[in-house]
Design a protein around this nucleic acid. Structure first.
Lengths: 344, 344
DNA sequence: CTGAAAGCGCTTACAG
DNA sequence: CTGAAAGCGCTTACAG
């Protein structure tokens, strides 16, 4: 491994002062054209790359942001990342860490992020344990959580945190209420861990409130918890069909589109038609819901916008602006397609 | 703006040497418990935060790899990235750049990558123009291209490059030949730009060779070029239906699963059943092909493995090992599901 | 315009 | 165990 070439090496080689070399490197005035040319060509010849870390030491801080995501292969999350990229000031780089919801990987990622001197962290869809939360709070590194599960309940919202999401409770309420309005009285729920502090819990509550308002008794027999992947939606639905053979729900509210799509397949394999036999509503609004058969009625989250707004919040956190509201709630939309049928 | 408190400040305040303070900061041995306690409490009292940048200056060089990807929201690519993450030595960070196939963004990303001193670059699914190729070749930065379009044809394979893919020609041949064997004689092709140096061209050639071997005349009227997204597959198929109303193909070979899934929807909307009226084969093997109705017959690329092998190649490139073969071809598999029907 | 020198805030031998 | 000192690779006054 050969030693890296420094500005001093270049200056020596070009027979100029290191100050001059630095001025050339930074495109500053007050350098004669000849010397500038000489230095430039020497840099090229020696294949000189400035050391960003050393540069950062004096003035400009290293611009690097990190994102920790629970599952990069979910298009819901990758769309948010795309939104982040779209809005990222161009001097920033973005480091990616995929945890697959593995706590050990999460911790390794965080170690790495500290080590690499990230200026801020986007936290997507990952469950944040107390230890991590405390560590991050103490690090004072700006953290923007997007659609993540954070145990804020017992403590106050840390000063270096911001949060972007939609109103999950309200969205779940709307979807469930729509099913009720359509005459459904037995509505199954496919949901992530209900004990999650935010997302799962909020959606569950919205579902519950809608049932209540429509005078339908909550039936825990038709509430199924899983990781909301395609496979999970498929398996949960199989289980539902097996367990409720004689009294099938007439509708399913799935807390993710992928789960809904998995459910669609499971129903098909059991000769159940959607929406004739069973109606389905999904959640997220990923692109493929438009192309499934039947196309899926769903709650659409503004994924790109969520990413873009996260960056805006991040920049404010970094520049220490007064942030009046550090919890940003964006609008969702309810997209009605083919997967719901009225029973009236 | 008050001045930030440094380690030297802490050392002075605690009446110890700066070296001792540093040792305490880094949890190193050889510090008496009393001094350690003293320094620790002084740090706390003064609200000292170590400057990570200065820390980074001394310590080992920044290990950082970069990935440039044409579309992060494609699960084909995000799965490869997941594979890369899986196999990445833990001291490395991974920077992500999404280009959306926009050349300007590609160039910005590359600038950034140079600036941030990446130790290597993964190039996923992006078309590499000549300028970029030359730049990268001159930079001597290790580059591993995965399923990318690189104009190698006229020049020799650069020494700092490696390439991972499957045998696209062979895979396309197999899929097309299978349709022929099933009695189909009129097979439409949904494909990316055929003039692409690698992927599109190779798959097109495989398709062509299979037709030839089965004594079927190539018909350019039923070859449709697009970007292979869900929407593109949908639109191309609509176009196909409109243009061939009286002489519809009996089968479609789509060069991506997403295009195949889009086609599925377009056919459904035109009251064409799959596979009864038209058979379909996709390409990539993404998870959702298992859950569509009908489930999709497809060529499956080993996405995680492609990511993992890319890292292995990258590490060899970085450590300058002798690389006997810098083009790695992995095995694909042909997955037969419900979307093809025999006409015999 | 230009070069020698003094930092930036830490880490790491080195001598005791 | 401990402190003084020499860097890390660059930037920024400063004097000419």
């Amino acid at each position: 491994m050969k030693k890296r070439v420094t500005l001093a090496d270049v200056a020596r080689e070009a027979h100029v002062g290191i100050g001059t070399a630095s001025r050339v490197l930074n495109d500053m005035p007050d350098v004669s054209p000849e010397k500038r040319k000489l230095v430039l060509s020497t840099m090229k010849k020696m294949n000189f790359k400035p050391n960003r870390i050393a540069q950062g030491l004096m003035s400009k801080p290293m611009k690097m942001l990190a994102v920790v995501v629970s599952d990069i292969t979910s298009t819901f999350f990758s769309s948010i990342i795309k939104g982040i990229e779209n809005n990222l000031p161009k001097e920033y780089g973005l480091m990616l860490f995929n945890t697959s919801l593995d706590t050990k990987r999460l911790h390794t990622a965080l170690e790495m992020i500290y080590e690499k001197h990230a200026d801020g962290l986007f936290f997507l869809g990952e469950h944040m344990d107390e230890i991590t939360l405390n560590k991050l709070e103490q690090s004072h590194m700006p953290v923007v959580a997007v659609s993540s599960k954070i145990p804020f309940t017992n403590k106050k919202f840390p000063a270096n945190f911001a949060y972007v999401s939609i109103n999950n409770e309200q969205a779940a309420y709307l979807a469930t209420d729509y099913l009720c309005e359509s005459g459904h009285r037995r509505i199954a729920l496919l949901i992530s861990d209900i004990k999650d502090e935010n997302v799962g819990f909020d959606r569950y509550n919205g579902y519950r409130r809608a049932l209540l308002d429509n005078k339908i008794k909550l039936d825990s027999e038709i509430i199924f918890e899983g990781d909301l992947s395609l496979l999970s939606g498929y398996e949960l639905t199989q289980k539902m069909i097996n367990q409720t053979r004689n009294n099938l729900p007439t509708a399913i509210f799935a807390a993710s589109d992928n789960a809904a799509l998995g459910a669609l397949r499971a129903l098909h394999e059991n000769n159940l038609s959607v929406p004739e036999d069973i109606s389905i509503i999904g959640f997220d609004g990923i692109e493929s819901t438009k192309f499934s058969t039947p196309s899926l009625t769903t709650i659409s989250q503004p994924r790109l916008e969520m990413g873009e707004e996260s960056v805006a919040l991040m920049m404010k956190l970094i520049s220490n602006d007064q942030l009046l509201e550090r919890k940003m709630t964006l609008d969702f939309s309810f997209i009605k397609r083919e997967s719901v049928q009225s029973k009236k």
